[in-house]
């Protein structure tokens, strides 16, 4: 790579997301690459915690970036890039859930409890098999958190993940989900309550997370 393009890359890296989007609108593919680098981890983790399937999450994250690039002309700098990107990804997830709900489902029969619901039950599937005060590793922790989040009712899960995993502000979450600020607040608090009830048994056992 010649020094000029390196310099240009360094200059682009110093720009904000919104400035980079303006560069993308002017036809700079490098700027878009930088944006992908900046957001791929955040977006992947949001989607992973939201749907619980890592491969599918990565697929949707890539699709969201593709959509963002294709529709970069529609992006207005009055909105934050991150909010815009999360909105695209959220809509993709919603579309998938809708498509899945239309398709016949068979696997759920095994998951269902007596009342037919899989949600908000105390965690019992993954037993780390550890003695109290024994440390568990990252993979186990990730799995536990994942299972717990998946048990939060879908309605509340999105706002919860955006808040607790991606640390978005309530206003940003309202913009991404299209909900009112008060609704976002109450949904997050309900989801927190669900999450607390789900992980409570593990916390009671005194496993050192």
């Amino acid at each position: 790579m010649d020094p000029d393009s390196l310099k240009e890359r360094a200059r682009l890296r110093s720009l904000t997301d919104e400035e980079l989007m303006l560069e993308v609108q002017r036809g700079s593919n490098v700027s878009f690459d930088i944006l992908v680098d900046r957001y791929k981890v955040r977006l992947l983790n949001y989607l992973f915690r939201l749907i619980g399937d890592r491969d599918e999450a990565e697929e949707i994250a890539q699709e969201a970036f593709v959509k963002a690039f294709i529709h970069s002309g529609k992006y207005k700098t009055i909105a934050k890039f991150s909010t815009w990107l999360y909105t695209i990804a959220t809509n993709l997830v919603r579309n998938r859930i809708r498509a899945k709900s239309r398709a016949p489902q068979f696997l759920h029969l095994w998951d269902r409890g007596k009342d037919g619901s899989t949600e908000s039950k105390p965690i019992d599937l993954v037993d780390p098999g550890k003695e109290p005060d024994e440390e568990i590793n990252d993979l186990e922790l990730s799995m536990i958190i994942n299972q717990a989040i998946q048990r939060i009712p879908a309605k509340y899960r999105m706002s919860f993940v955006l808040r607790e995993i991606n640390q978005l502000s309530y206003e940003e979450i309202a913009a991404v989900t299209g909900l009112k600020l008060g609704t976002v607040r109450s949904r997050i608090n309900r989801a927190r309550n669900y999450f607390r009830k789900i992980v409570e048994p593990l916390l009671e056992r005194g496993i050192d997370f």
């Binding site: 690459d33 999450a57 990565e58 970036f65 993979l139 990730s142 958190i145």
Partner: peptide, 28 residues
């Protein structure tokens, strides 16, 4: 309990995207 459970979720390890993430985006 709430503080502990939220602390747990805040410590969720970040998933790393695959190495060919950017390449896949470009391919798509």
């Amino acid at each position: 309990q709430m503080a502990r459970s939220l602390d747990l979720v805040h410590r969720a390890p970040l998933e790393a995207p695959s190495e060919n993430f950017n390449w896949n985006v470009r391919l798509q």
